[in-house]
């Protein structure tokens, strides 16, 4: 039987923990709202961009661009996007697991794998594998487009230099506040089929292009990569906050359960103490008779 004081201190401690997790839950909720707003803002841009890309690629013959060139795949680069902080349930672990699986299956096919990690969690997880080529900590939560641009440029430069023949992105997709799933996406070479799948407009051919379609494409393709990387980062940060929100909610509930059972123990111990004292008094009075 734990002593009364022990139980009391423990209840106090758990209560404090519950307070913290509750606060973190609320912070995550506020941040989630911000991230979702950003996603909302970005969506119109991305949609219009995809539509324009669709128009363009249907108007020209693709394959003439180094960024779209399909090569025999020897080295695959994976861009892993995770959060910077933990305490968000299994969100990051799922992304890591998916990446691990991907690496294993690629290596089984005799391909080399290198990693570019965004977010501290993936950096520390993959540090010991020796596959990490570039790392970008402390970027999440800033939502700056130029961060995404730097990453996209790095990936493209490596691809164009022939050091990687294929680039994929693994990130956490935001399905809803309750559901976040790791997802994998092809990044480079850019696939025209995927691009034109948006909305091929009927009047695609009748546009006046200035400069030529090819030159426009040369400007648009890098922008398109920025859009993809930025999109992945937005998804991850929204998912991170959503995951943290539910994780902290669970933690608060668990704290409540523990407090409940500890209170039972405490009351039992108190009752036992009182009973023992009563017995003593009764025993003493009996002896005096």
């Amino acid at each position: 039987m734990p002593s009364l004081k022990d139980v009391k201190t423990k209840i106090g401690g758990v209560k404090k923990t519950a307070q913290i997790t509750k606060a973190m839950n609320m912070v995550a909720a506020a941040k989630l709202r911000g991230a979702q707003q950003k996603m909302e803002d970005f969506r119109s841009y991305a949609e219009k961009f995809n539509a324009a890309m669709g128009n363009l690629s249907s108007a020209m013959d693709s394959g003439a661009f180094p960024l779209m060139e399909k090569r025999e795949v020897k080295t695959v680069e994976i861009l892993v996007v995770t959060s910077d902080r933990g305490l968000c349930g299994s969100f990051n672990a799922h992304i890591m697991k998916m990446t691990d699986r991907l690496i294993a299956s690629l290596e089984a096919q005799g391909k080399k794998v290198s990693l570019v990690c965004v977010g501290k969690k993936s950096i520390s997880y993959f540090r010991k594998t020796g596959k990490v080529r570039q790392r970008y900590p402390d970027l999440m939560g800033t939502f700056q487009m130029f961060n995404a641009r730097a990453i996209a440029q790095e990936l493209a430069a490596n691809f164009l230099a022939g050091d990687s023949d294929e680039v994929r992105i693994v990130y956490g997709k935001f399905k809803s506040v309750a559901v976040q799933r790791p997802a994998e996406q092809m990044f480079l070479p850019i696939q025209p089929s995927e691009v034109s799948a948006a909305t091929p407009s009927a009047a695609a051919g009748s546009y006046i292009y200035e400069p030529s379609t090819e030159e426009i494409m040369e400007v648009l393709l890098p922008l398109y990569m920025n859009v993809m990387v930025y999109h992945a980062m937005l998804e991850v940060s929204a998912s991170e906050h959503a995951a943290r929100m539910s994780a902290m909610d669970n933690a608060t509930n668990a704290c409540k359960d523990i407090i409940h059972s500890l209170t039972l123990i405490y009351n039992k111990a108190r009752q036992a103490g009182i009973t023992a004292e009563l017995m003593d008094i009764v025993g003493g009075a009996e002896a005096l008779k």
Partner: peptide, 16 residues
């Protein structure tokens, strides 16, 4: 290719 102006009923046009 320099500044351009667009008025209503412009032909379909795409430029960087």
């Amino acid at each position: 290719g320099g500044e351009f102006g667009v008025l209503a009923n412009h032909a379909p046009f795409l430029s960087t």
